[in-house]
Design a protein around this nucleic acid. Structure first.
Length: 667
DNA sequence: AGCACGCCGACT
DNA sequence: GTCGGCGTGCTC
């Protein structure tokens, strides 16, 4: 047809554009075929942003061309692309394939993954990028430094062979450039990335948080030129992020570092995906469809055939499962590096009677001796001053006068406040005995610092927690009181590490407590100098002995065996199905008679019910597809349900979430 | 989400 | 006989 008029046209055998519409609706989360007008033939390539008509003339939607294909099986009149918004192919075929597979696995929208993978367009940034298209070639690479500590060439060989492997990190700190200290894990990761680049391929490195990212960046700066390293993380401003994203599209081998969504970076010629500390909950994506970095990395490894490395001080049960099914191999430090852990399971009776009963005499001795030489780390469970308060008269726990929440205190001088609603407890009176005086219960970082400051007069005391983050401290003597996960790196390593609140950490009720505690302690222990004493206070049993003997993998193995016996994740997969009674029942019914275990339904707050579906990994794809179909069906019918039950808050009729361990947290 | 299509009660 | 109610279904 040669008419100039817009609208449907006959296309014969001309190629069509398959478009992903940017929409949160599950029923639109699939590809639509569009004709390509003559004027857009050149620009309409896979990956570009487009605007397309949807349903009726005049309405346009944004989207991406996913592929240019011969006419598909769609019979009917095709609409035509309205506009190619930008010439940059931002949704690469590889990333699209990843988004589709990952979202299918989680019964979610591919669009939601694409939103994580492709940052918002920034026109100025894009123009600058296109103008500089004649890129200056990057300087050639030096031969890379070896990956030290695992036997000569072992890691390099595994990367070159595109293996999947788990590496036990070396629990030491290292000076990468004069005055800059990082965890040895960062050195290992940087060297692995350099080896990948030397082989002509790109590496993606994902770490839990920005503190880890700083260490990794320092380690990389020591082995690679700055132009070879790209940061791509959520803390960046939109323009910075888009600029970094566009750089990833280059064909030159680079290292891309960032936190969880960096696994979706558009690397051409991917050689390695590496994760540090995959057990850290920050690797768990809080946005639908809640895909963990580890799972996305596993899918990407299969699709691209790159190497895959899990690196950490404490192996997660998920990685242990992969080890046991021989999906990943294991590398341990060669020779072994064993921190010197001193258990103090039983406190002596003198200790109990002593004024400082929280800190046993062994710990005091180690701290006192170590403070002669350098910094001492004290890990505590809670921030603030006193995590809890009670009535000084009747000893009952003090409750908020507004919402009955527990009271706590931030600093020694601040007004007590409710831990739930934040209301200040002024003119507080005990609901039980009408007492007016409060008493501190337990010690947060602040109160611990005060106690230790009194015990070690003249020693500098530094508090590091989520609110007052401190990344590094010097080599001079000081007491560093840190909440778990907020420990600074000390130049040269800590001369002693005291893990004070093991007992209360372990008292938390959760499926993962033991695993989490071992990880928190191991990560803190890895900040110690070689041979420095690490004192674990008040914890005994299998968990403590795994820590003392530095056999985290053995612990993960027995933990996984326990989960297998109980059919708990990650020994099996789970999905939660939440919504109206009817929708949940219908969805579960489609799973068939020889289907998975069905637990529930139970009522959830806000109305509706939740059912847990539990099944073996092999059935995951089938169950995800079935539940996904139900979500689409119920989304299309939702307004009907809304219309009928017009009064009161109506819950979304059906939600599905895979690999959600939350329902297993309270056992 | 929007928006069109379609089958039953009050109106010129 | 027709106008229009919103229940139902689709979007290349």
């Amino acid at each position: 047809m040669s008419t100039a008029s817009p609208g449907p046209a006959q296309h014969g055998q001309r190629p069509i554009a398959r478009v992903l519409i940017d929409s949160p609706l599950p029923q639109l989360d699939r590809l639509f075929d569009y004709g390509i007008p003559e004027a857009l033939r050149e620009q309409a390539v896979a990956g570009v942003r487009v605007r397309v008509p949807l349903r009726s003339a005049g309405r346009v939607a944004d989207g991406f061309i996913v592929e240019i294909a011969p006419p598909g099986d769609y019979v009917g009149v095709l609409s035509e692309l309205e506009e190619v918004v930008s010439a940059v192919p931002v949704l690469t075929p590889e990333v699209w394939a990843l988004a589709r597979k990952v979202s299918e696995r989680a019964a979610g929208n591919a669009n939601d993954i694409v939103r994580l993978a492709v940052p918002n367009r920034q026109v100025r940034v894009e123009k600058a990028y296109l103008a500089a298209e004649v890129q200056t070639p990057l300087a050639p690479l030096h031969p890379p430094a070896r990956v030290q500590g695992y036997g000569d060439g072992v890691i390099e060989t595994a990367i070159a062979a595109r293996s999947r492997f788990a590496v036990d990190a070396i629990p030491l700190v290292a000076e990468v450039t004069p005055g800059v200290w990082v965890g040895e894990w960062a050195v290992t990761m940087a060297a692995a990335a350099a080896a990948t680049l030397a082989g002509g391929a790109t590496a993606i490195l994902a770490v839990p948080d920005y503190r880890d990212q700083e260490q990794l960046a320092s380690a990389l700066a020591a082995v690679l030129p700055a132009q070879r390293v790209i940061r791509l993380d959520a803390k960046q401003s939109n323009p910075d992020r888009y600029r970094a994203f566009l750089r990833c599209l280059s064909d030159d081998p680079v290292v891309i570092i960032g936190n969880r969504s960096v696994v979706y970076a558009p690397a051409a010629n991917l050689g390695l995906v590496a994760l540090f500390d995959d057990g850290d909950p920050l690797h768990s994506e809080p946005l639908s469809p809640y895909v963990h970095t580890r799972d996305a990395a596993l899918v990407r490894q299969e699709q691209s055939g790159c190497a895959l490395m899990f690196l950490g001080h404490a192996r997660s049960t998920e990685v242990e499962r992969l080890v046991e099914v021989h999906w990943v191999r294991v590398f341990a430090p060669q020779p072994a590096v064993l921190p010197k852990v001193v258990p103090t399971a039983q406190q002596s009776s003198e200790d109990r009677l002593a004024a400082q009963a929280r800190i046993p005499s062994t710990a005091w001795r180690e701290a006192r001796a170590a403070l002669e030489f350098g910094p001492v780390l004290v890990q505590v469970a809670r921030p603030g001053y006193a995590p809890k308060l009670s009535c000084a008269d009747c000893k009952r726990s003090a409750r908020c006068m507004k919402c009955e929440g527990p009271l706590g205190q931030k600093t020694s001088r601040s007004t007590p406040a409710c831990n739930w609603c934040g209301a200040l407890a002024v003119d507080w009176r005990c609901a039980n005995c009408d007492g007016e005086r409060l008493r501190f219960v337990g010690s947060g970082a602040g109160r611990t610092a005060e106690d230790l400051g009194r015990a070690f007069p003249g020693v500098r005391v530094i508090v590091a927690d989520g609110e007052r983050p401190i990344l590094t401290v010097g080599a001079e003597p000081a007491l560093i009181i840190a909440t778990r996960g907020a420990e600074p790196i000390a130049a040269g390593g800590y001369r002693a590490v005291l893990l004070l609140d093991g007992e209360s950490m372990i008292a938390r009720e959760s499926l993962r407590v033991a695993e989490d505690c071992l990880r928190w302690w191991s990560n803190a222990a890895a900040l110690a100098a070689r041979r420095a004493p690490i004192v674990l206070v008040g914890v005994g049993g299998a968990l403590a002995s795994a820590f003392v003997t530095w056999r985290q993998a053995d612990f993960a193995r027995s933990e996984l065996a326990d989960r297998r016996a109980l059919r708990f994740p990650p020994a099996v997969r789970v999905a939660t199905v939440t919504g109206t009674v009817q929708a949940v029942a219908d969805a579960v019914a489609t799973l068939g008679v020889d289907g998975p275990d069905i637990l529930g339904p139970v009522d959830v707050e806000g109305g509706g019910v939740r059912t847990i579906v539990r099944f073996d990994y092999a059935r995951g794809a089938e169950i995800a597809a079935a539940l996904r179909a139900e979500v689409v069906k119920s989304a299309a019918n939702r307004r009907r349900a809304l219309g009928k039950a017009a009064r009161g808050p109506v819950p979304v009729s059906l939600k599905v979430r895979f690999d959600d361990v939350e329902p297993f947290l309270e056992q």
